[in-house]
Simulated assay, not measured.
Amino acid sequence: MQYGDVNVTLENHVAVVTIQRPPYNFFDVALIENLADAFAAMDEDTECRALVLAADGKAFCAGANFSSGPSVLEQSDGKGRNPLYVAAVRLFSNKKPVVGAIHGAAIGGGLGLALVPDFRVTCPEASFAANFSKLGFHPGFGLTHTLPSIIGQQKAALMFYTGRRIKGDQAHEWGLADVLTSADQVRSEAVRLAQEIASCAPLAVMSVRATLRQGLTEMLTAVTDHEASEQDWQRLTEDFKEGVASVAERRPGEFKAR
């Protein structure tokens, strides 16, 4: 099954949902909507009991594709909501458990996408960063809720304020990843964990998952609305323009607080 740049295969009750925009898998609104459509279809497929979210190429997801134009950032759905984050909330609203296969970089909004799954499998070579402060930009994709809920407020603040990258082994130590394995085994280990989940009674698994995630959709709707409102004014600043340019040019940003 193909949903734009998203491929889905289903075997032994596990759907492997693969992002196919190598090498870096930059996202735009269309990609997140394609993922949300794939997740929704697997929610309706009774043969599917668990999902694996994976990606082809060098990175899991290196962040937003700013070259695709303002649609990545601007609110344009006519209701004051960012369509990117509407689609992101749809991803978090799926009913069935998800295991993330994070084999490479998960940066910025790509980190937000990596936190959609219930569990993450990674390798020492992978890297994780909330690099928004280096872009002159407020975090998005629900990260201001999801990241602290997984690794704690203090470690999340460190990642947000510094924009530093942490490698896969540190991510595992912090609880950001649940399984650490070799790079060539990330996807197979993710499938193995998904199959272990799929071997349990599916109605019971979905029921307890719904209990554990009660209120999450509503929370993330409010959080992403706030994140988008902060991003709206910050994307008009000189610092944001400098941040995007400096990251693209791989140099330190020269910020002026204006």
Rank of each mutant, 00 (worst) to 15 (best):
G80K: 10
F66W: 02
V52K: 04
L84F: 08
S68G: 02
N65W: 10
K58P: 00
V72H: 01
E47S: 12
P70Y: 03
E74P: 04
N65M: 06
D77P: 12
A54V: 00
P70I: 09
C48L: 05
V52P: 02
E44D: 14
N82E: 09
F60G: 06
F66A: 05
S68V: 03
G57Q: 11
G63C: 02
T46H: 12
L73E: 09
G78I: 07
D45R: 05
N82P: 08
G78M: 09
S68P: 02
K79E: 14
Q75E: 13
E74W: 09
E47L: 14
L53H: 03
G80P: 11
E47A: 13
L51P: 00
D45K: 00
D56K: 15
V72F: 07
P70W: 00
A50Y: 01
A59N: 15
N65T: 03
F60N: 06
K58A: 11
N82H: 12
E44A: 15
C61N: 15
A54Q: 02
D56V: 11
A64E: 10
D45H: 05
D77Q: 08
V72T: 13
R81T: 08
K79H: 14
P70K: 02
P70C: 03
S67I: 04
K58L: 13
E47C: 06
P70T: 06
A59S: 15
V52D: 04
R81N: 12
A50K: 02
D56H: 12
S67W: 07
G69P: 01
L53R: 01
G80V: 07
L53F: 14
E44C: 11
A62Y: 10
C61Y: 10
A50S: 04
Q75T: 13
G63R: 07
V52W: 02
A59T: 09
A50P: 01
A55K: 04
P70L: 11
D77L: 07
V52C: 03
P83Q: 06
S76T: 12
C48K: 00
R49E: 12
G80I: 06
T46R: 14
K58T: 12
V72S: 00
F66Y: 12
V52G: 01
F60P: 00
P83G: 05
D56G: 12
F66L: 03
L84R: 01
L73D: 08
A59K: 04
G69L: 01
E74T: 13
L53M: 13
K58F: 13
R81Y: 08
A59R: 03
G80A: 04
S76C: 14
K58N: 08
K79S: 13
G63T: 06
S71T: 09
K79C: 11
P70S: 09
E47I: 02
A54L: 02
A54Y: 04
P83F: 00
D56L: 14
V72A: 05
S67M: 11
E74F: 09
L84C: 03
G63V: 08
